[in-house]
Computed example of a mutant assay.
Amino acid sequence: MRFQDNAFILFFLASFCQYVHGARAVHRPKEKMTTSEEVKPWVRTIYGSLNEIVTPTVIAGVTFSAKPDPTPNPLQPWVSLKKDGTPQTIKPEIKKGRTQKQKPDYSTYFKTATMHTFSYEELKAVNMDPNDVHEEEEFVDEDDTYVSLNPIIRCTPDRYFSKGPAKDIPSEPFCTPRENSDWKVGKTYFVTWYTRFFEDENSDTVADKVRVHLSYVKEKSVEMGNHKRDISGTFFTSEWIDNVDGLLPIEIKEDWLQNTYERRIIVSVQPYNIPDEDFDPRLNGVLLYIRMGSKVYKPTKEQLALQDAGISDDKWYYIALSIPTVVVIFFVLMYFFLYANGKNRDFTDVTRKALNKKRRVLGKFSEMKKFKTMRNHKYTELPSYKKTGKQN
């Protein structure tokens, strides 16, 4: 075998060994303690005269129903949510006399608009006639008796995101999680929605109870072009909860994966006034992934494009895993083939034929069209110089 063949094979094997050595195994997340624990209860008075014992609860590091400070603090930390629904604490600060990162203002999103009619006797305005009336729109604040105990940012329409393959579909009623987010086993994520979205058009009343569904989604490669998805079944359904909260913490269980590393699911919220047979989780649901653990690699641009397009199929993983094996087998067979036929290889005939094809007979210069007009001189007609004495 020639030296070039040996060098090429050794270089490939060294590169492959380096690639395998640099790979890391997937580590399962360690078991964590429960995300909920009891803290000291406290007493408050609600609706003027009713006493209530409040028991704070800690979920994913966030304390709900905590006892408020005696005096309002504009720099009181509050909890925001990342794209996947994990909490992060925001600490307001004062810079150049202005408070930055302060708790969000929800404007009129949770207020009720009413028309108040004023008579002349009520206003007695100087520019009103005794028979005139004045109508003015007013916004009535919501009952924050229990909403005030929630430290997490609330979902409002200005926090909607765009979803779908073309990113042209509003995420209503959801603010978190974002589409194609990763939910990992053992962690807790918050699903948040705009509570006023579930308002009855006929009665103008908002649904008081809702429940959250998690359903499997199976996407087949033959259906990817049409973006069709088959809802295999709902594997998680919460109890009926108060819609006024607008959120639900969900801890991801390992058995939801059904002995796989990853599953595609859809999150949906069902209001109390819609029966089960009329509820479609695909109508306003959000697609995302539940995974066994952290990834050991960053997704490529092609993988991100597939996720944005909503494409997921187990065949992609099988193909990705089989490519390195096929490459190794190919080069091993090539090595033994070259080794076995090293003495029988002779390429001199091939190279000789190739060189002969490149050779051309030019012929005489006088017969070429390009040089016919040129006047050739004999060698004897060239100028000559006599040698001087010094040169002798």
Rank of each mutant, 00 (worst) to 15 (best):
D208L: 11
I329A: 10
I290R: 00
A309W: 04
D230K: 10
I319T: 07
R264C: 08
K298V: 07
K95I: 12
G22F: 14
I169T: 14
L75S: 02
T176Q: 03
Y379S: 09
P299M: 04
D144G: 13
L306Q: 13
N180P: 03
K364G: 08
G48C: 02
Y335D: 10
V62H: 01
T195C: 09
V58T: 09
F118S: 01
K124R: 14
A354S: 15
S268P: 03
T63P: 04
K111F: 04
T325Y: 12
E367N: 13
M334Q: 10
P74T: 02
Y317I: 04
V267S: 02
K372W: 03
K103T: 03
S36Q: 08
K364N: 11
V361Q: 10
K357R: 12
F16S: 07
T55E: 11
K111W: 04
W316T: 07
D278T: 03
S65Y: 15
K103A: 08
K253L: 04
P72V: 03
A354C: 09
V147L: 12
E137V: 08
S162W: 05
P74S: 03
Y339Q: 12
P74M: 03
T89L: 12
D69F: 15
T260H: 14
E136F: 05
P104G: 00
E381F: 07
M33G: 14
R282N: 11
I311V: 10
K364D: 05
K370L: 12
G310Q: 01
G186V: 02
E302C: 03
R360E: 06
R28K: 14
P299C: 00
K358M: 04
G246C: 05
G48M: 02
E277H: 09
E199G: 06
I153C: 06
V267L: 04
N341Y: 11
K96C: 06
I290H: 01
T63A: 13
